[in-house]
Design a protein around this nucleic acid. Structure first.
Length: 453
RNA sequence: UCCAGAGUAGCUCAAUGGUAGAGCAGCCGGCUGUUAACCGGCGGGUUAGAGGUUCGAGCCCUCUCUCUGGAGCCA
């Protein structure tokens, strides 16, 4: 029966008879015997198997090349040489699947660009094994965070007829052959349909019934964005809380980011140490900092003042009423505060219709969480719960109220103050791993012109 | 989408407009415990694609494609 390498390496006692199965990372030959470094993906580390050339199944060592899959039976013993605590003394070796000389992964380093072209093999590399183990762990941590706080997990639809914000390019879903706009009523759903850009509006529906809810699922944007931080398909986490204001929303956002940093440090130490060594040498220090220290909070107005009095020459102008640019956000979080920053109360003109209008009638209860190295990871707000104000907001943003009849119904019947935010799971992973390209934290990246795998 | 840079062996990279090369990987051999093992030998090229300038182009020019960095949009 097979034992995962992770468990064998964590053991405290020798074992007389164990079986491992995995892929050969490298083979080193000596006279009469060979060392096989075997990895099964259960952890970053390999298990070294020592195989005598007389071992059954290993009479010819040549097919046991990098990339080949093997089964090794033997005894786990303390290693007499430096470099590893345990090694497997083989009694029987079976070549499960050979890998010939065209196997593209080598034991030496590859560039991330090259590995992206072999997305079907890159999980077998140290870096991507670590990234996707951490991704899995953190997905679990997301659920644990919300479930332990009595949030209800809502599966919002992937196919939707509503354009959440009246902005953002959407992918069309249609079964029509010709022009889908010619007769939308003849289409599969009897109307125009798209892939969702956000589950927020649907999450609000459920928050106005189950109190605290969250979504965690794929989201799609047809924007022609070519950056290291954007993908056409990504996973978004969207909590929504009834009877909650902006302050409570910011509290939850901060608590969430801290909890994720803590979880990674605690549950993925081996993979994080690898990132810290090969990807970002300040990663662990930064995560501990984020986990321990309170985030800074400034209003948009204060942020503009800080930027204007910084004496810094920015490429883009800093002026009340304009959106903060990447360079401005980076200055605030990386240089001025040197800490995650939550910026709140933005001018209503630059934010969507559903955000709650403040008493000054100029700003809305928006908030963005900025973190060093990544920029914006969270965008959220308190939602407008007053029917007549929401109707005015729709008009202000030149949207048709009849398209949002069900959304307005939430305000007609038992409306409550409520708030929530959206967080890109991949951006969170970039922050927690130090990996700087979103294409490298998602198994199969969907970006403009790229859907090979 | 805009600006800048890049594309040479399976991989990482060299090569004043003048004979395309190295390391690693692979193959063959050596080595009694290796750790990105080491030592010796061998094979490996439509220089991203198309066109142009030139006696001669990997190198200069034009277009296309791809990638990278930055920007916009955002999560």
């Amino acid at each position: 029966m097979r034992t995962l390498i992770r468990h064998l390496l964590a053991t405290s006692e020798p074992a007389d008879s164990v079986t491992i199965q995995g892929w050969i990372r490298t083979r080193r030959d000596s006279k009469g015997f060979s060392f096989l470094e075997i990895n099964d993906g259960s952890c970053l580390a390999n298990l070294q198997a020592v195989v005598d050339h007389a071992t059954p199944g290993f009479e010819d060592p040549h097919p046991f090349t990098t990339g080949a899959s093997v089964t090794v039976e033997g005894s786990l013993v303390p290693s007499p040489a430096a470099g590893q605590q345990w090694e497997l003394r083989a009694r029987r070796v079976t070549l499960v699947g050979p890998a010939d000389a065209t196997y593209p992964l080598q034991k030496k380093g590859h560039t991330l660009e090259f590995l992206r072209t072999i997305a079907h093999l890159r999980p077998r590399s140290n870096l991507f094994g670590a990234v996707f183990r951490v991704r899995s762990r953190l997905a679990f941590a997301v659920h644990q965070f919300f479930q332990s706080r009595d949030f209800v997990y809502v599966h919002t639809p992937i196919i939707t007829a509503s354009d959440c914000e009246g902005a953002g390019e959407m992918f069309r879903v249609t079964t029509l052959k010709g022009d889908p706009d010619a007769r939308p009523e003849a289409d599969f759903f009897g109307r125009r349909a798209y892939l969702t850009v956000s589950g927020q509006l649907e999450a609000e529906i459920f928050a106005c019934a189950l109190s605290n809810v969250y979504t965690f699922g794929p989201t799609f944007r047809a924007e022609n964005s070519n950056t290291a931080r954007h993908a056409a398909e990504f996973w978004m986490i969207e909590p929504e809380m009834a009877f909650c204001d902006l302050a409570g929303d910011m509290d939850l956002a901060e608590e969430f980011v801290k909890a994720m940093a803590r979880y990674a440090l605690e549950h993925c130490p081996e993979d994080l140490a690898f990132f810290n060594k090969f990807v970002d040498k300040s990663l662990e220090e930064r995560l501990r900092f984020v986990a321990d220290r309170p985030f800074q909070r400034v209003s948009y107005t204060e942020a503009v003042q800080i930027l204007r009095s910084s004496g810094r020459a920015f490429e883009f102008p800093v002026e009340y009423g304009l959106n903060l640019q990447s360079e401005h956000e980076r200055f605030l979080t990386e240089e001025h505060f040197k800490s995650p920053v939550t910026v709140f109360n933005y001018p209503r003109e630059i934010k969507p219709f559903y955000m709650r209008l403040n008493d000054d009638e100029k700003t809305v209860t928006a908030m963005d969480v900025l973190v060093p190295g990544i920029g914006e990871v969270i965008g959220g707000s308190q939602r407008e719960e007053r029917l007549e104000v929401l109707e005015r907001n729709l008009a202000f943003h030149k949207l048709r109220a009849e398209d949002y009849w069900w959304y307005l119904d939430l305000r007609r019947y038992g409306t409550v103050p409520h708030a929530g935010f959206g967080l890109g799971f991949e951006r969170l992973l970039m922050f927690l791993s130090g990996v700087s390209n979103i294409r490298d934290v998602i198994p199969f990246a969907r970006t403009p012109g790229n859907a090979e795998f």
